[in-house]
Amino acid sequence: MPKPQVLEFSGQFWLNRKGCGYLGAGRVELLEHIDECGSIARAAKRMGMSYKTAWDAVEAMNNLADQPLVVRATGGKGGGGTLLTDYGKQVIAGYRLMEAEHRRFLARMEAGVKNFDQINNLLKAINMKTSARNQFLGQVSYLEKGAVNSEVKVDMGEGLEIFAIVTNEAVEDLGLALGKETMVLIKSSFVLLSPDEKLRISARNRLYGTVREVVPGAVNSEVKLELPGGRVLTAIITREALTELGFVPGQRACALIKASHVILAVND
């Protein structure tokens, strides 16, 4: 009878915020390369990933962080680039310390568990997964109940606020209350964009920012709007709309979102 292979105690160390993946070894390594290179493009090349994948990871981290981890620098001898903030450097240092303690914990566990080679399944943390492209962390700052629905305002910091209309039953199920930490989820297809910041429309939410990137597609196009605090809102619009409205990087724009299209989530 062949000798059974010995299983090794291993695991990945991730930090989540309200059920969303925030920091892992790969993302931290990307941040370290950005700090060394001063460029997301060069950092992505070192990591063997595409520029878009690297930017998406940076946006996800910035959107979930209390402060931006990465910012763009303009001008200077090198013509600008991408910089890690002091807060970003502190986050890296803290992650590396916790990661080292995590490795020591796994080593102690492996040494203390007998017949570990017979263990076939390990419990895994259950993370909230969603198809919504835009995810922002905030706190409930206003809550008004009506006969059927409730109006909820979430403060996302840096002057950013978002209104959501949810059922009273959802308020009870989620335990929403003033000060409650809440995740705001918005599908990119629900985001309307306008170059006219004074446009009058019934959409309750208006988020102002600067177009950072435009990715044309055969049918639909992706437009990324940089909001205050380094957060990024992604919108999917038709190719015809992109041609008509003429969005280009650096242009000011307004994102319009109906309160009924905003999804709220908690992870208690």
Rank of each mutant, 00 (worst) to 15 (best):
P2R: 13
P4H: 12
Q5A: 15
S10W: 07
F13S: 04
F13R: 05
F13V: 06
L15D: 04
G19N: 07
G19C: 12
C20S: 15
C20I: 15
G21Y: 01
G21C: 03
G24D: 15
G26K: 12
V28Q: 01
E29R: 14
E29D: 09
L30P: 02
E32W: 11
D35K: 13
E36I: 05
G38A: 06
S39F: 07
A43N: 08
A44R: 08
M47Q: 14
Y51C: 00
K52G: 13
W55S: 09
D56V: 08
A57P: 00
E59F: 13
N63M: 02
N63H: 05
L64W: 02
A65H: 05
Q67Y: 08
Q67K: 12
R72P: 00
R72Q: 09
G75Q: 07
G76Y: 04
G80W: 05
G81C: 03
T85F: 04
D86K: 15
R96F: 04
M98P: 00
E99W: 04
H102Y: 10
H102I: 00
R104A: 06
R104L: 03
L106Q: 07
A107I: 00
R108V: 00
M109S: 02
E110V: 01
A111Q: 12
V113T: 10
V113E: 02
D117I: 00
D117N: 12
N121E: 14
K124F: 09
A125N: 10
I126R: 14
N127Y: 08
M128S: 13
S131I: 14
R133C: 07
Q135L: 15
F136K: 12
L137G: 03
S141C: 15
L143F: 11
L143P: 14
E144M: 12
A147D: 13
S150W: 11
V152H: 11
V152C: 03
K153H: 06
V154G: 06
M156A: 14
G157N: 01
G159C: 04
G159I: 06
I162Y: 06
V166L: 06
E172S: 07
L174Q: 01
G175I: 02
A177L: 05
G179C: 03
K180T: 06
K180G: 01
T182A: 09
L185Y: 10
L185K: 06
I186Y: 09
K187V: 09
S189Y: 02
F190E: 14
F190W: 13
D196S: 10
S202T: 15
A203I: 11
R204C: 10
R206I: 14
L207M: 12
G209H: 08
G209T: 04
R212Y: 02
V215Q: 06
P216I: 04
A218S: 08
A218M: 09
V219L: 15
S221E: 04
L227I: 09
L227W: 02
L227Q: 05
R231Y: 08
V232H: 01
V232Y: 01
L233T: 11
T234E: 08
A235C: 02
I237Y: 03
T238Q: 06
R239V: 04
E240M: 07
A241F: 00
E244F: 10
E244T: 14
L245M: 15
L245Y: 11
L245V: 05
C254R: 08
L256D: 07
I257W: 05
K258T: 11
V262A: 04
A265R: 03
D268P: 15
